[in-house]
Design a protein around this nucleic acid. Structure first.
Length: 405
RNA sequence: CAGGGUGUGGCGCAGUUGGUAGCGCGCAGCGUUCGGGACGCUGAGGCCGUCGGUUCAAGUCCGAUCACCCUGACCA
């Protein structure tokens, strides 16, 4: 702690009203540059990276290949799908090249990845193919709000799949559904449900992943066992009939959209000319699907969901550190140094010249899962005190039984 | 974009009828403390969002503008 530049704040800046923004700022995870634009500080970056790791692991398991596409976008490409015009897509950030001409800052990546794949997909032998990235997206929102939940610049995971047939797209889509279930479970986002949402003109529905959350921006309806959850935008008699549910069996709640999956089919491959030769050497259009997760939003949602009156409470798997080490007294400090050595990745050692109360308060504000105290009192028993941030319960653990992992 | 609100040291705030700024936290030094955000003394730190106007004099009055927050609309 004495080596980091992070300081905690007793009070949140008055322009951070949303709980996630207020706590993440007070605890030193993020810093606001302007409305809807945040810097991620060392602790915040650690959380983001842990979230990314979980997503990456699960996507790699289902054949995803990680790439990193450019942010600057060529208008010509987007004009082929009609999506560069401000009438069609009103959230573009556009800027000028000094050599003349305009470029856009990508709000999403269907066009560039479809175009890119024209170089690498030419035969049915090249398919299926799945690529994904973690990338900063730029969207010129009319109104940024809710801390890091709705920014103008945010980190998103977007994955795109390419197939020879609708059957294969359906097959893969189902695999993604399972992977998403695992991802949200691992992130600690239980209360996240696949939700029916409008599918635009190419399919009846798309699926959103909605985390039930009081400050969520979306309104959804769900039945008792949550086997059916639907967005307010498709809450009508026709859809209810399709899904076989009755109005009186549904309850309303607010939720935050953390992911979205979509069968694009030919929506981008056709206008951009992404084709392949089948077994009989017939040229066919590639089927596509796309699958997003709002990575920085996920961080905000988890912050909101688990915070209590004392501060943040991170699930262990995405916490920046697992242990918050506090020494009291000289003997405690000596032992703490010993425990800390070699465990810099999992332990945040509060070696500041501060009194214990202040350190305890910062531990709670930062939301580290376990507090480990070494003091004369605990050393008299050859032990440390371990306190669970979530429950507040403490227990004395013999040094012989205590191992930092 | 519409409506409402707010801009004063790093953070939170106060500033009376106009007379060039004060408090708490934080920060620096010294001392006392040391298991729940301790205390004393000393000290550093402010073009009062910006531009223009009124006035002998503007944080304070007038105009414009910018930024931020909230509600709504919007959010393939």
């Amino acid at each position: 702690m004495s080596q980091t530049f992070i300081k905690t704040l007793r009070e949140a800046p008055k322009d951070e009203i949303a709980r996630n923004g207020a706590l993440l700022t007070r605890a030193g995870y993020v810093h606001k540059e302007m409305a809807g634009v945040y810097d991620f500080l060392p602790m915040g970056l650690r959380v983001l990276e842990k979230i990314k790791s979980i997503i990456r692991e699960e996507l790699n398991k289902i054949g995803g290949q990680e790439v990193l596409l450019s942010t600057l976008q060529n208008p010509e490409l987007w004009e082929k799908t009609g999506r560069f015009s401000n009438q069609q897509v009103d959230i573009w950030f556009k800027t000028e090249l000094s050599s003349g001409g305009v470029v856009g800052l990508a709000p999403t990546h269907e066009e560039p990845i479809t175009n890119l794949m024209k170089t690498y997909i030419s035969s049915y032998k090249d398919l299926p193919l799945v690529a994904y990235q973690f990338q900063t997206k730029f969207r010129n929102e009319k109104r940024a709000k809710s801390g890091i939940l709705r920014g103008r610049e945010f980190l998103m995971k977007d994955m795109y799949s390419f197939h020879t047939s609708e059957d294969d797209l359906d097959r893969y889509y189902a695999e993604v559904e399972k992977a998403y279930e695992r991802i949200f479970a691992r992130l600690g986002l239980d209360d996240t449900y696949e939700t029916f949402a409008s599918g635009g003109i190419f399919s009846k529905y798309s699926h959103e992943y909605q985390t039930f959350l009081s400050v969520g921006e979306d309104t959804v309806y769900y039945n008792d066992d949550k086997s059916v959850v639907l967005n307010k935008e498709v809450y009508n008699d026709e859809v209810l009939g399709d899904l076989g549910v009755k109005r009186e069996d549904l309850k309303e709640t607010t939720a935050a959209e953390v992911g979205n999956i979509f069968k694009l089919k030919f929506k981008y491959s056709e206008p951009l000319g992404l084709e392949f030769s089948d077994e009989e050497n017939h040229l066919k259009t590639v089927y596509m699907g796309c699958y997003g997760i709002g990575v920085s939003r996920v961080m905000g949602v988890i912050a909101e969901k688990y915070a209590d009156e004392k501060g943040l409470v991170w699930p262990e798997q995405i916490a920046p550190y697992k242990y918050y080490l506090v020494a009291i007294g000289e003997a405690g400090a000596a032992k703490a140094e010993e425990l800390y050595a070699g465990h810099e990745e999992s332990v945040l050692y509060d070696d500041r010249a501060a009194r214990p109360g202040e350190k305890f308060a910062d531990f709670e504000l930062m939301g580290i899962p376990y507090r480990v105290v070494v003091s004369d009192k605990t050393l008299a028993e050859d032990a440390v005190e371990v306190t669970d941030r979530k429950t507040g319960e403490s227990k004395i653990v013999k040094l012989a039984d205590f191992a930092i992992d």
